[in-house]
């Protein structure tokens, strides 16, 4: 694929890339800490992954193979448009197969297939601050992180238990990284949280509107917050995937008619296609 000659490689100018690259290196050195960066306006609206796109653009090289997923799927609008964006501006090879990708940009899922040490996972993040809905002032949350003052988050989880009998947070479930910073893993289902713990691949997080970059280096401890008497648990289903029969994957509920018909299928389309022998997508 040749790239449009009117763009610098991967759209961003070199000074912007350097600024983002410096932020990424700080993020890797301080796992879970949100590094402020001078987020640029991108040719797509906030909320469409501008943070992830800027991180990917700064990391990407000619020999990378890029995969983009949106809620696990390679063929939904957000994934298709970002993949095309990098085909056009960087001319890099793209793939839908998790195993073939060197850089994977994701919106709200971690692939089912275990990631390797030679891969980089880039998350799109809407609200990077895990304490934001508990404390709206940035000056306060920054001090709370500085002092490791995280009691408020445990109170929030405790209120879940007192109201619902269990921790009702199901996505963007807060984690503690390397026993120091509390971090928002982006709105991935809590089903995916255990995959972050000691993952072999480097994980980078970009929040465009909120202008923050953070990271989890390979093999880093990622602990989902919980209580001794209410340990962290992931979602479970009574069904298997209706297409490939998988019993270990994250399932989406699909409404099939207006008479209560429904089916459960894998959210990770590449994983599902591989298992069912389909060549689609």
């Amino acid at each position: 694929m040749t790239r449009g000659q009117t763009y610098n490689f991967a759209y961003l100018d070199e000074q912007t890339k350097r600024m983002i690259r410096r932020a990424i290196l700080k993020a890797v050195a301080i796992p879970g800490y949100q590094v402020p960066f001078a987020s640029r306006e991108m040719p797509m609206p906030y909320g469409w992954g501008t943070g992830g796109v800027q991180v990917t653009a700064s990391v990407l090289g000619h020999d990378d193979v890029l995969k983009v997923i949106d809620q696990g799927a390679d063929d939904t609008t957000n994934a298709v448009s970002i993949r095309k964006f990098f085909q056009k501006t960087a001319g890099v090879e793209t793939t839908t197969e998790t195993a073939n990708a060197s850089v994977i940009q994701t919106r709200h899922r971690i692939p089912e297939e275990e990631l390797r040490a030679d891969q980089i996972l880039v998350y799109q993040v809407p609200i990077p601050e895990p304490l934001r809905f508990l404390e709206p002032r940035e000056t306060e949350t920054r001090t709370m992180h500085a002092l490791e003052e995280y009691g408020l988050m445990h109170v929030k989880l405790y209120e879940d238990i007192s109201r619902h009998g269990h921790i009702a947070t199901t996505y963007a479930y807060p984690v503690r990284v390397n026993a120091r910073y509390i971090m928002d893993p982006s709105p991935i289902p809590k089903f995916d949280n255990p995959k972050m713990h000691r993952m072999a691949a480097l994980q980078l997080f970009g929040a465009g509107r909120e202008k923050r970059i953070y990271a989890i280096p390979p093999y880093t401890q990622v602990h989902s917050l919980d209580f001794e008497d209410h340990p962290f648990e992931v979602q479970q289903w009574d069904q298997a995937c209706a297409i490939c029969g998988a019993e270990v994957s994250f399932l989406d509920e699909i409404i099939t008619d207006d008479a209560g018909g429904r089916m459960f299928v894998c959210s990770d389309t590449d994983f599902c296609n591989k298992r069912s022998g389909s060549t689609a997508a």
Partner: peptide
């Protein structure tokens, strides 16, 4: 610049 950054990123990550 990109190749150098990736080497430095890899180095700080491992």
């Amino acid at each position: 610049a990109q190749r150098t950054f990736r080497a430095v990123l890899e180095a700080l990550s491992r």
